[in-house]
């Protein structure tokens, strides 16, 4: 500020004092305006979102009952339910988790612990960063071209699970890398010093120590996958499914059945999209109810992830 540089003697000094006080008062006022402005903007955004979510809950919560959860979709809004949708979501998530978590953790571990600095590691890193930004619908197109028609797998639970696994892979990779990077070097060096080879160190020391961080990333990824609609639409999942895929566990030998992987299916967000796009208000209520179920699922998954991270941070502080 110019006033502070004019510090000369006599009357001028008194004058600059006053000017300086005025400048300070002005700066303080602006500070208050800034912080209040920040709070107001925050409050507006939060209120808007809470209103929207509240509206959804008010409209949808009353519709959720035992019948809604155990009925198939129907042409009559009051008899329609989300049984095939939530079972489908569950099965697709199972496939996604079984694929994305091992592969994502392995890739993250490689980039952090195995890869030497060089063009290859750099290339992989750029690819991961880029894949995180590719719109989900493009993954849908990839799945149509590669899985559905290229490999002739059809529009099945397996294809949807694989597509969503590719989609959340970057999330799992990034969180694994962060978790592994945070582990103190001493742990690794101690294990090597005792004669463990690289994989033994990874399996017995690095992975267990990184488990909470990895878990957080996996849960956040799955909560993203569970609400993802666009790629599932592009692979052409049917929206009217009034039957369940065959059960994965059977009463007869060998007790495990893989037919469900090849079954047609629907998932919760598709069901919601289907009901939102209909003109009748009754179906909109159904959509709201499905939305409540979906929000409850994703928010509780995220809540668990945040809680794990909170515990992790508290643990490391002690």
């Amino acid at each position: 500020m110019s006033v502070t540089t004019q510090g000369s003697l006599g009357n001028a000094a008194v004058k600059t004092d006053q000017a300086a006080y005025a400048a300070i008062a002005r700066a303080k006022r602006r500070d208050i305006i800034f912080s209040v402005g920040g709070l107001v903007v925050m409050a507006i955004a939060m209120t808007l979102l809470l209103t929207l979510i509240g509206d959804l809950v008010v409209r949808g919560l009353g519709r959720i009952d035992y019948d809604f959860l155990t009925n198939f979709p129907s042409r009559k809004a009051e008899r329609a339910g989300i049984l095939s949708a939530w079972v489908g979501s569950l099965l697709v998530m199972l496939v996604t988790a079984l694929l994305a978590i091992p592969i994502g953790v392995a890739a993250g571990l490689y980039l952090e612990e195995y890869a030497r600095k060089g063009w290859l590691a750099n290339l992989i890193e750029i690819n991961v960063a880029n894949l995180a930004g590719v719109p989900s619908i493009i993954y849908g197109l990839l799945a149509v071209g590669m899985f559905v028609y290229g490999m002739n797998l059809g529009k099945t639970v397996l294809v949807a699970g694989m597509t969503l696994a590719l989609l959340i892979l970057p999330i799992v990779i990034v969180s694994t890398r962060e978790a592994v990077r945070a582990i103190p070097k001493i742990i690794k060096e101690g294990a090597y010093g005792l004669g463990a080879d690289q994989w033994q160190v990874m399996w017995n020391y690095i992975l267990p120590a990184a488990r909470p961080g990895i878990l957080t990333g996996a849960i956040v990824g799955l909560s993203r996958a569970i609400g993802e609609t666009a790629p599932i639409i592009t692979i052409g999942a049917l929206t009217f499914i009034a039957f369940l895929p065959p059960a994965p566990i059977t009463g007869e030998f060998p007790f495990i059945n893989f037919d469900w992987l090849n079954a047609p299916f629907t998932v919760l967000p598709i069901q919601m999209f289907n009901w939102v796009s209909r003109p009748q208000a009754d179906f909109h209520t159904n959509a709201a109810a499905t939305g409540v179920v979906l929000m409850a699922l994703t928010l509780s998954l995220n809540g668990v992830a945040i809680w794990i991270r909170y515990r992790l941070r508290k643990g490391s502080r002690n």
Partner: peptide
Amino acid sequence: RRMIAGIMRVFLFLSAALSIFVTTAIVYIL
């Protein structure tokens, strides 16, 4: 032990290289 470590090394590398494959596949399919 050496064999296991070697196999895991290859598996980890392939998992990481999958991202290159996916990007290529997206461009190729489109």
